[in-house]
Design a binder for these strands. Structure first.
Length: 763
DNA sequence: TGGAATGATGTTTTT
DNA sequence: CATCATTCCA
């Protein structure tokens, strides 16, 4: 048990207290993941069967990493058998086994947010309501939070408080929408994200035998990020833990950032009530960050009224003060961050993955992408539009879903006429009406068209039948073909692949490649492990099990040395040596949506606390005084959160006004000085061509000589671009470093390129 | 019925 | 500024 030596005293005690209920309140960077990891390893070392350990994490990625770390301590074979994953993925697995008991088909599909909203919208329209008043997004959120609080449609309708809220908001019929929505999901054999938890609760409530089974299977239960669980999740844990009461929850109230999604501090308080004899441990020593960062973060979070008192401290070095940078615009902010990363990277010989750029909203990523791309720094964007949300991917997945579960109506509507089969809006509308009249799924309505009343003409019905026939031909292959083989077959015989292949625009090509990538992933999936098909074949149905629960963060593309761009929410649980927190402006961070109450503002503040405490060595805050929003230039003030940091931890460069030319230039000349012999030229003389060569020499040594100087390029010049290929300059505007060329590329169309960055070669 | 063109409309955060 | 959705035309 020498692995215990890796732990400090507090951690060791927490790891070794294996039995009975316990709560670990763990400050940021205090090694809470370490405690969980070692605790599980320790349990197994003591002889606990891995199959009887249930460990719930916040993301799939966290689960995967934890499994790997446990594997390193006690061996992969043991680690593999632990029940570990997000609430959603673990309980979808259990529902997959047990769902017929609550009348769902074995191959139920999972609706993602887009599917759910689309269905909500359909329901609203069918009820003849105005979707300006009943906004699908708002209605969906309302339904979602009802479900997360385990309020059924009937309970929703009966609750006087809820009813009056909805009436006040001008949405008296929300309860009806909820009921219809729920019914339609059920009819489609589909569960949305919240249903996975809601229905788990139903299952455990109505089937004592099932409850009993899992209570005894899971002798040890661990929950990470407990502060971010909602009521529905809380109750599942409570029920499952009731038999053994070996439940260990780990969290930090200061990092609770999902109240908007129904997470509640109440769960921590409930825990104390539910298990009066519980043990509590506090981990307060931070191993991650410098003193400056820890103390700066403390000085911020202390402004919150709602919190459990604790003192996070560290033995680490003081570290550098936190730089505050003022940019003149969002693009300027992007350039500053990019060039500073460039600088730090050269100065400290670090890798790209040591850097993270954190922002409040996904929309902010653009300026940073552009700036990084211009100086050839590799980056990866997390979140945003995920791979699985792209249209072409969703289209193909819809075919898969329909093959596995023909009742799935959202999938049906998505592809019934894509690629075009002459089944138009009118036909679909008629089908929907008939389906609602008979309370059948769209699929069944077609199947039983002879016996039910409908207004479809024979031609339309024929086309619909052709469609279902082709889906049926896919269904016949499920058991006998691998996910990959069938996936390939569906992609081509549905006509989808052909449709994409015909589109030669760059976007069209990208879509085609995405499909190939999905199929490649399926190939890998099919070749690894046992499935439910014939001879253990991994089938399409197996592939679909949790594809809806995957996010981008779960994909590794091999090359991982990249700068991370993500929202602060998705940075939770991660750490980076150098962290840039950008967009530190009032109304952006804190968000203007979150300034209506103290509670909301405090959540924003916790979010800022999370952001700061991601940094190990250096944090840097920046804000832009102007920024484009909805295409309009708006002016912004710096965020109140900057003022809330004790100023002794800050390097307020932003207050030194009119600081030399532009930081961009300065940082580049610094980089230059660090890496090349100083030239005779003065800093001003080294302006553009030189600078360009510096970055060029570092990032792309081979081509350094061939690049055209901006002066070499004029209207009519034929040029070569690394990505777009050959092109012709149509016009030029701007002066010196701002010279911008409009170039026409036969392959990519017309592009505007800033000459100092575009690295055009003369053709 | 399908496609293109025009208009309107919206950005918090995620499993 | 995008994207989306609806509208209008072929």
């Amino acid at each position: 048990m020498d692995y215990l030596d890796d732990l400090n005293e507090a951690q060791k005690v927490a790891v070794q207290s294996t039995d009975g209920p316990m709560m670990v309140i763990a400050g940021a960077g205090s090694g809470k993941t370490r405690v969980l990891t070692y605790r599980i390893a320790h349990l197994i070392e003591l002889g606990v069967d891995p199959f009887s350990i249930l460990s719930l994490t916040f993301t799939n990625k966290a689960a995967k990493e934890m499994k790997e770390r446990i594997g390193k301590i006690i061996g992969d074979d043991e680690a593999r058998n632990i029940w570990m994953g997000t609430f959603h993925s673990v309980f979808s697995r259990i529902l997959r086994i047990e769902c017929e008991k609550i009348n769902y088909p074995r191959n139920f599909t999972i609706y993602d947010t887009a599917d759910s909203k689309s269905l909500v919208k359909t329901v609203i329209k069918e009820m003849g309501l105005d979707d300006k008043v009943y906004k699908p997004g708002v209605v969906y959120n309302r339904i979602s939070s009802a479900k997360n609080n385990l309020i059924s449609p009937a309970a929703y309708a009966d609750d006087p408080e809820i009813s009056s809220e909805d009436k006040m908001a001008g949405r008296p019929r929300l309860a009806e929408i909820y009921a219809t929505y729920k019914n339609r999901c059920f009819r489609a054999g589909a569960m949305d994200f919240d249903d996975l938890l809601f229905n788990t609760n139903v299952l455990l409530r109505d089937h004592p035998d099932v409850l009993h089974k899992y209570q005894h299977r899971f002798r040890y239960i661990l929950v990470d990020e407990y502060q971010d669980t909602n009521f529905s999740q809380y109750l599942i844990i409570k029920k499952l833990a009731a038999a053994h009461e070996n439940v260990c929850v780990v969290g930090d109230d200061a990092q609770s950032i999902y109240a908007f999604r129904g997470a509640s501090i109440q769960n921590i308080l409930n825990f104390k009530q539910d298990y009066p004899g519980f043990k509590i441990f506090k981990l307060e020593q931070n191993y991650r960050s410098t003193k400056v960062i820890v103390n700066a973060a403390n000085s911020v979070i202390e402004k919150n009224k709602d919190q459990i008192k604790k003192t996070v401290w560290t033995d680490n070095p003081d570290g550098k003060q936190i730089i505050v940078h003022k940019a003149s615009s969002d693009n300027d902010e992007g350039q500053f961050v990019a060039s500073r990363i460039f600088d730090l990277k050269n100065q400290f010989k670090t890798t790209h993955k040591d850097f993270a750029i954190l922002y409040r909203t996904n929309a902010q990523s653009r300026a940073f992408e552009e700036a990084l791309r211009k100086i050839n720094l590799p980056y990866r964007i997390y979140g945003g539009l995920s791979f699985y949300q792209r249209k072409e991917i969703k289209d193909l997945l819809a075919y898969f879903r329909l093959t596995a579960n023909p009742q799935d109506e959202e999938a049906f509507k998505r592809v019934v006429n894509y690629p075009a089969r002459g089944i138009g809006k009118t036909s679909l509308e008629k089908l929907l009406i008939a389906a609602n009249d008979a309370d059948l799924s769209l699929w069944e309505t077609i199947e039983r068209a002879a016996e039910t009343s409908h207004s479809l003409n024979n031609a339309a019905l024929g086309k619909l039948r052709d469609f279902t026939t082709s889906i049926k031909s896919f269904q016949a292959l499920i058991q006998n073909q691998s996910a990959y083989d069938l996936g390939q077959h569906i992609a081509s015989s549905s006509g989808l692949l052909k449709d994409l292949h015909q589109d030669k625009s760059p976007e069209g090509v990208a879509r085609y490649e995405n499909i190939q990538e999905l199929l490649n992933g399926m190939k890998e999936f099919s070749d690894s492990g046992e499935g439910s098909g014939k001879n253990g074949l991994r089938t399409l149905a197996d592939f679909l099990l949790d594809v809806a629960l995957l996010t981008d963060a779960d994909n590794d593309d091999g090359d991982n040395d990249k700068i991370a761009l993500m929202t602060i929410h998705s940075a939770k649980g991660l750490e980076f040596p150098y962290v840039f927190i950008v967009g530190m402006e009032e109304n952006l961070f804190p968000s203007q949506m979150a300034m209506n109450s103290r509670e909301e503002l405090e959540e924003e503040r916790r979010l800022f606390y999370v952001a700061l405490t991601r940094a190990e060595k250096e944090a840097c805050l920046s804000y832009a005084t102007t920024r484009y929003r909805w295409g309009n230039l708006i002016f912004a003030d710096l965020s109140r959160f900057i003022d809330e940091i004790d100023e002794s931890f800050l390097d307020r460069r932003d207050l030194l006004n009119s600081r030399k030319p532009k930081s961009f230039n300065e940082d580049f000349s610094n980089a230059r000085k660090g890496f090349f012999n100083p030239s005779n030229k003065s800093a001003n003389d080294t302006l553009f061509s030189d600078k360009k060569q510096v970055s060029q020499a570092i990032t792309n040594p081979k081509n350094a000589g061939a690049i055209a100087k901006p002066d070499d390029i004029s209207v009519g010049t034929e040029v070569l671009h690394s990505r777009f290929g050959k092109g012709k300059v149509l016009s030029i505007e701007g002066e010196n470093e701002n010279r911008k060329a409009t170039v026409f590329f036969p392959s990519a169309g017309q592009k505007q390129l800033l000459l100092k960055f575009a690295k055009l070669e003369l053709a």
